[in-house]
Design a protein around this nucleic acid. Sequence first.
RNA 1: CGGGAUGUAGCUCAGUUUGGUAGAGCGCACGGUUCGGGACCGUGAGGUCGCAGGUUCAAGUCCUGUCAUCCCGACCA
Length: 570
Amino acid sequence: MRATEYLIPTLRETPAEAEVASHRLLLKAGFIRQSASGVYTLMPLAHRVLLKIINIVREEMNREGGQEILLPIIQPGELWLKSGRWDVYGPELFRLKDRHGRDFCLGPTHEEIITELVRGDLRSYKQLPILLYQIQNKYRDERRPRFGLLRGREFIMKDLYSFDRDEAGLEISYRKMYEAYHRVFSRCGLKFRPVEADSGPIGGSVSHEFMVLAGAGEAIVLYCQHDPCGYAANVEKAKSPATRPQTPEDPQPLEVVHTPGQRTVEDVTSYLGIDPERIVKTLLYETDRGLFAALVRGDRELNEVKLQNAIGAVHLEMAGAETIRRVTGAPVGFTGPVGLHGVELVVDEEVANMVNCITGANQADAHYRNVNPGRDFKVDRITDLRLVHEGDPCPHCGRPLAMARGIEVGQVFKLGTKYSEAMGLTYLDEHGAEKLVVMGCYGIGVTRTLAAAVEQHHDEHGIVWPAAIAPFTVVVVPVNVRDEVQATLAEQAYEMLSAAGVEVLLDDRAERPGVKFKDADLVGYPLRITVGKTAGEGLLELRVRRTGESRLVPLADLVGAVQSLLGDDR
RNA sequence: CGGGAUGUAGCUCAGUUUGGUAGAGCGCACGGUUCGGGACCGUGAGGUCGCAGGUUCAAGUCCUGUCAUCCCGACCA
């Protein structure tokens, strides 16, 4: 490919709206252009990268027996009503009507349509397992699209769905995908970490997310640095052992303390001169399952996802001042479990262990001292509600957990029978009994992976593509295209590399060398071949983008030198 | 959806306070000189100032509405 015949519209100045590195560099280097908020055109360079990532994904899916299909992006609303998600999915779902007024949506995911598909053709256990996947545009009307390709409203995903006869079969499919994901992201040249993930209030049991470690990541990961342990989870899922009171105490009689204007845990601790571990925070939540109070220790933070799972709620929101006054009879800051009616109490394990703690008294300017769970209030439910922080002990080995930010590029998920039950997907087993199919789903954000690669591989000059997904692996730069010797040598180098199957771009533009060097660094070709002052001696300069190291090679040795360098890079 | 900000040339921005003929740099086209890290000189093209109303002799500038985009938060089976 020749630069004069190829659209690589690099910009000298960075478009103002771009904040994170991948967004900024992809715009500046001419890979993407924005069409609407969260909607982008992939230019020729980005499209080449995309195809490479897709090829890797496709090879690894096929290797595990995945069969590729194309599913409709426009999906009938009827199917979503059947699964119950037409109402649950909310405004994230892009909805539309056809000319007859029938409801449709743009698929944000494809469980419904694929379950329906398989239902039509699956009869016998002999047909199982089935692994089907598609790589297509998906649509989610995000409240706030951001960071360029990292969180768009239109994006490309690979989704594979597994259909098995039982849990044991699902376990095999799950493991296959888990291994395949390792290979996919390794081959893409990414540093990543699989972590235990929350599977949501509805749906199955086990889930892992694959995180590309990068500062711009929106997800927070906690992991154990101790090697053989290897515990890692995203912050919603992360656990840490509950602590018990150090010194045993006898329960003391309940008493009221006057605490004028002391609303926060900080206020109360300093006012009463006590540790926050002695306080119990009572947080009121309004949910689709009713009103709940969550109790955590004063020095802890509530993990809303854990609360949501504990009570099986889909939506949950902290109660406002109005509700708090109505329910507790007191202003915000004095809520407590003692004498609280009409609200289910969800109690963190740590709180259940506490003796003689401080809580709000459900009246203005007052707290209770010597509150004891079980004695002074009824504990409706005990569970883990704590948000884990960096430094908290690992649930497996007790060593302090480390924290990192990550970009979620893939998730593997045991769905179980959620969709097969809702959609009536069954088969007959060898005894002629009708059984529910056990499903799994496995997604990879392809466009997000592209952006994540840039996030992880760039420097102050531009992108530094891993060789396996670079748009071109080599750029040949003649310093002066009007110099006959240079032009001819560059042409020869280009022909030889092309013939050897190397993906090479010849920068034959009549630009000054500085411009071409800057562009080469910006676009991020792993290798650059400069044809310049040593052209007369038949020598070309081979330079590695990542390290900046360079050396002179004669034309005859060029292909070998390039291939060995690419070998190192992979 | 709450908070903040911005819409003027392809890009980055000035001009808005105090209403009076639309600006700069980069990029682009043409000519010339240059040619190993975003050259220089000259000439030129390019804008219904986001959109719609209103005030005024006169609106990029003032008023009202509206749309779009970005950032923070909330949200993210």
